[in-house]
Amino acid sequence: MAEPLLSIKGVHAGYGDVPVLWGVDLAIERGEIACLVGSNGAGKTTLMRTISGLVRATAGSIAFDGAELAAAEPDAVLAAGIAHVPEGRRLFSAMSIRDNLLMGAYLRRDGAAAVEADLKKMYAMFPILAQRQEQDAGTLSGGEQQMCAIARGLMGAPKMLLIDELSLGLAPAVVDQLCDALRALNREGLTLLVVEQDVATALEIAKHAFVMDTGRITRSGESAALANDPAIREAYLGSL
């Protein structure tokens, strides 16, 4: 097996004196879609935040594409090629959609023409964003906001995109559209790690799945295998 793109080993992290992650191990292959599932409070969001540098790892290593990121600040993580679409989208709500997307390209140094070309790509992928580009992001519906947030993440030209809670609060038709877009991006070579509370959706789009519980990865493997695992089915899919 080739060297994984993202390799996390023994990562501990938390907030103040409250530890949340208790030695997380996880490896994502280059060019795959992986998903991270688990119940509320399992530490999924904290793991995302630790990868992107918002939370400092207190122990362990986060290796990405040959670089060690466990002690990196968020700007260094993005510069290394990991963009993070945070839980709740966190768009700049009183900024126009176009300015939100340009914020995604904040660190880029490859020139205005390249950024403009990527804007066009985003508008082609999500035409609603093009129609409403001068409107404030706060006026978008939930699904449109998620499109904008994903597009904003992509504007940083990352090698890997982390998406925290892809489908939360969204209509099934919108989730299908987002999943199609993610598969298309993946075919173009983007690696994805998706945190998803809807385990059925997660296992459907991801090649590998990681199950998190109380700050550790408790199960992992091919999505298809996990989907047929009786324990997983009982705990997360609600049917036997």
């Binding site: 992107s52 540098g53 918002l54 968020p74 700007d75 993005l78 510069a79 963009a83 993070h84 945070p86 966190r90 768009l91 700049f92 709500s93 009183a94 900024m95 914020m103 995604g104 904040y106 660190l107 904003r152 940083g156």
Partner: peptide
Amino acid sequence: VAVRMDREAAALMGV
């Protein structure tokens, strides 16, 4: 302006 609106989201943009 981004930092004013959401400091953490701005940090995720590399600010």
